[in-house]
Every structure is written in structure tokens, then in C-alpha cells.
């Protein structure tokens, strides 16, 4: 991926991510996150991760965020009132965030420019990132984790139904 394209995608995703956090209306927040996820899927395609990009759109943007949108609409959430929180809390939150950002960027700087592995400039083996490659790895090396994830999803489904069900009294 060329530098201008990367910077355009990065700028757009940062703007929409900021939109998630700064918008007052929850529906606009959720739609900004959809845009961010879609842009990240585009970045994934450029990183030779076709299957993961398709999965991101189908599962994350197409299912999880639809559930978010359902809940926002069913709860009939309006624009958030201007927050009456204390200025001290805002200041604390912003300070913590800035410290975190600085710490992470410092770590990034210190990590050096030589990372292990073939690198971004080397071509990947053909079929890298395709569904066959991911599936093969998933069902051979990560089979146990896959099955446990299945159990986790079952627990999630049962939990969601039990919690959201209206108690018949």
C-alpha cells in the first residue's frame, strides 16, 4: 500500500473514531463506528487479510453493530444531555488518556526499526490470508480454542436470553 493511500485511510478512520466518542447522539456514534470498521476492513485487504476483512464486515459491522443499533432504538435513546459532570473528572480522564497515548507512542519509538520476520516488503506466499489458510490453521493448531469459543458463544446466547427476558410475574 502506498503512503498517500495509507494516510488517507488513517485520517478517515481517526476522524470517524473521534466521531464515535464525541457525538452526542448514540445512533450517530454507532454509525461512525460502522464507518470506522469498514475503513479498517479496507486496511485489512491491503494487508493481505482478505478473509478477515470479509469477516469484519459480515460479523462486526453487519451483525454486532446492528444489535447495538437495535438496542439504541428499542430503548429510544435521544441526544445525550450536555454532561453535568465535574470538570475535575474531565480533566482526569483527559490526563490519563494523554499519558496512555504518550506511553504507547514512546514504546513504539523505542521498539526500533528492525522487526523480526520477513517484513512488509517481502511478498507473502500465495494464498496467504485466504479462507483456506486461515481455516487450515484454525482447525489444526487452534482446534481446542475453537471448541472453547463455541462453548463461550453458547454461554453468551443463554446469558443474553436470560438477562433480557421479561420476567413473567
Amino acid at each position: 500500500m502506498s503512503y498517500p493511500l495509507f494516510f488517507v485511510l488513517a485520517a478517515l478512520s481517526i476522524i470517524s473514531a473521534a466521531g464515535v466518542v464525541l457525538t452526542r447522539h448514540p445512533v450517530r456514534s454507532a454509525m461512525c463506528l460502522v464507518v470506522t470498521l469498514f475503513l479498517l476492513a479496507v486496511v485489512f485487504v491491503f494487508l493481505d487479510a482478505d478473509f478477515v476483512a470479509a469477516l469484519q464486515v459480515v460479523v462486526y459491522a453487519g451483525a454486532i453493530l446492528v444489535v447495538f443499533l437495535f438496542v439504541i432504538m428499542l430503548l429510544n435513546l435521544e441526544r445525550d444531555e450536555p454532561e453535568t459532570h465535574s470538570q475535575r473528572r474531565t480533566f482526569t480522564g483527559l490526563t490519563v488518556t494523554c499519558l496512555l497515548a504518550l506511553a504507547l507512542l514512546y514504546l513504539l519509538r523505542q521498539s526500533g526499526t528492525v522487526l523480526p520476520g520477513p517484513g512488509m516488503n517481502t511478498a507473502v506466499p500465495p494464498g496467504f490470508g485466504s479462507i483456506e489458510a486461515v481455516g487450515l490453521r484454525l482447525f489444526t493448531h487452534y482446534l481446542l480454542q475453537f471448541e472453547i469459543t463455541g462453548l463461550l458463544m453458547l454461554a453468551g446466547v443463554i446469558g443474553a436470553v436470560v438477562l433480557a427476558k421479561r420476567k413473567v410475574s
Partner: peptide, 29 residues
């Protein structure tokens, strides 16, 4: 995953998405 030319990174992303889905369902409930 791309840097190391290892498919394991993408498999982990698969798991992260699954866990995020389960967590979102329960959290929203």
C-alpha cells in the same frame, strides 16, 4: 501477521471477533 508472514495473527483476530460478539450480546442484555 503480515510482518511475520504468519497466519496465526489472523486466526487470533477471528477469535477476538467471536469473543467481542459474545461480550456485546451479554453486555447489551
Amino acid at each position: 501477521a503480515r510482518q511475520l508472514a504468519s497466519i496465526d495473527g489472523q486466526v487470533i483476530v477471528f477469535f477476538v471477533m467471536t469473543v467481542a460478539a459474545a461480550e456485546a450480546a451479554v453486555g447489551l442484555a
